[in-house]
Write a protein that binds this DNA or RNA. Structure first.
Length: 222
DNA sequence: GACCAGGCACATC
DNA sequence: GATGTGCATGGT
């Protein structure tokens, strides 16, 4: 086991002990996860929940229902999630791809080759690396490690990487040093967000942070 | 009233 | 290739 792999394991164990299981994406259906992945772009999950509830109330929590909605109506429904005009277009673009290539069937998507699926997702307007990986991991159970702003911040703050690092670099750091376990990737990412929110805030020092004792100078690994 | 939140595309240099 | 900006609601 490499030194990085060992440190990642220490991080994970420390975070799990401190915060417990996070139960992320407690959605009623995988499609709800897909919708949430788009709606949560740069947006708090609370607002996303409101928007998803409004979609459900409108009977629009399916690919074909979203496809059929006029774009203005869709935007109005998802309004609480913010950026509603652009997200309405992104959401409809995504479901139209799902329908065109997979009949709008997530089970069929699951049987596709993950790397192909990721490329196809990235080709949809409004689906970037994080949203694509969130869909792959949380909706389809593919072991892709989701990287977000918190992941960057926590990783930099605690010496996992030498900034600047890009998305693929940080993702490789996790995927290359952890067993490809979707449930664990899911939990680990949620735990990184938890510690990011509570301790590793933008300006503040990580006071009482459970990762403090594992922090070190990344130069030492170089 | 500023700042932040589970990003991404596009313009400009 | 790097850097800046628009997109928008709702909670602190």
């Amino acid at each position: 086991m490499t030194r990085t792999a060992k440190r990642l394991r220490e991080f994970y164990d420390a975070l799990l002990e401190r915060f417990g299981p996070q139960h992320w994406w407690p959605a009623d259906s995988p499609f709800e996860v897909v919708v949430g992945a788009v709606l949560t772009q740069n947006t708090s999950w609370k607002n996303v929940e409101k928007a998803v509830a409004r979609l459900a109330a409108a009977g629009a929590l399916s690919p074909h229902a979203i496809d059929a909605l006029p774009i203005e109506a869709l935007a109005e429904i998802i309004r609480p999630a913010g950026y509603y005009n652009i997200k309405a277009r992104r959401l409809q673009g995504l479901v139209r791809w799902m329908i065109a290539d997979y009949g709008g069937d997530l089970e069929r998507m699951k049987s596709a080759h993950p790397a192909t699926l990721r490329e196809q997702l990235l080709a949809v307007k409004g689906i970037g690396p994080e949203t694509a990986d969130a869909i792959l991991l949380y909706a389809l159970g593919v072991p892709r490690f989701v990287v977000d702003a918190y992941t960057f911040r926590v990783a930099a703050r605690h010496g996992l990487l030498l900034p600047p690092a890009d998305y693929d670099e940080l993702q490789s750091l996790f995927e290359g040093n952890l067993a490809p376990d979707a449930a664990m990737f899911n939990e680990f990412h949620a735990l990184l967000v938890a510690v990011g929110k509570e301790h590793c805030r933008k300006q503040a020092r990580c006071e009482g942070c459970p990762l403090e004792r594992f922090s070190h100078d990344p130069q030492a690994d170089a």
